[in-house]
Write a protein that binds this DNA or RNA. Structure first.
Lengths: 146, 146
DNA sequence: GGCATATAGTTGTTTGTGCAACTATCCAAA
DNA sequence: TTTGGATAGTTGCACAAACAACTATATGCC
């Protein structure tokens, strides 16, 4: 059995993503404690818009690994919070380009600091070379399945 | 900066759990293709009941890393599907003990085979020692944050 | 016994996800 | 130029998660 390192007791946490769930919950609590009224999912959309704004919803789907209805509703909620604006593309009227508001631009520094802090807490006892291997394995898993 | 190996471009996938999301989606598709009418979340509850049935909802909360309302509703849905039964404890009437039906017992072998298959597909190109390190890191992350 | 407190489970609300079905727009080929 | 297929986005539905507020039962202490 090639690469079947998963005995029954170990299989569960890999599939359910216990570790990433724990990281996301911790970060959400930090957002709440800081009075930041956004969800992790909304933050993950903003994260990509901070790298490049004015992209389409479809590009956000690809970047965040979500389907179109999920992005439609996340953008709906981000618009309600006055964090993004939909702007119809002039060259292709099917497309919405998504832009950040000034309010959203202000969130970047604080939320990224909280995210760094969360990962440092998660990995405080883990040597750097093991973290690198872990990141590498997770990337390969994603590439193998996407 | 101790253990801060996360540059911006890498931070995202760790927090959002891209890899475990991809694994869960692949497994869900296998369930659907096999005509198994259950969700990954329902399966994760059955998974623990196959190891030991007759445990309380609270014990299922601890085992599955979910809160009480989540388990209430998962057990609701599993009961509707005739896969589990709530049985009131005789010694403590606050407690529901959860038992598998015959129908659920039949699902174990087939679903576990599909889960093994999914993990093999995910890890087919990854050497065993790297998988071990990855599992270890994820466990430490979970322990650091729980 | 009676009361305070803790524990087990449920319900309501908001948010997010996956799938299917739908509309609108674009584009390319007959 | 029309028509058929592809693409972008939206909506409806079922399921799930987090949080708060709630009921019922148990337990410990006076």
């Amino acid at each position: 059995m090639p690469n079947n390192q998963f005995k029954k007791g170990e299989l569960y946490s890999f599939i359910t993503g216990k570790a990433s769930t724990a990281i996301a919950r911790r970060l959400q609590k930090k957002f709440n404690a800081a009075g930041l009224n956004i969800t992790i999912e909304q933050w993950s959309v903003l994260y990509h818009l901070w790298k490049q704004e004015g992209i389409s919803q479809q590009e956000l789907c690809n970047a965040t690994f979500r389907d179109k209805p999920s992005i439609t509703r996340l953008v709906d909620n981000l618009e309600k919070l006055n964090l993004v604006k939909r702007v119809a593309s002039e060259s292709d009227r099917r497309i919405n380009l998504i832009y950040l508001t000034k309010q959203a631009q202000k969130l970047q520094e604080e939320t990224m600091a909280l995210a760094d802090e969360t990962l440092n807490e998660a990995l405080i006892t883990v040597p750097a070379d093991k973290v690198d291997i872990c990141k590498e394995v997770l990337q390969v898993v994603y590439d193998n399945l996407k």
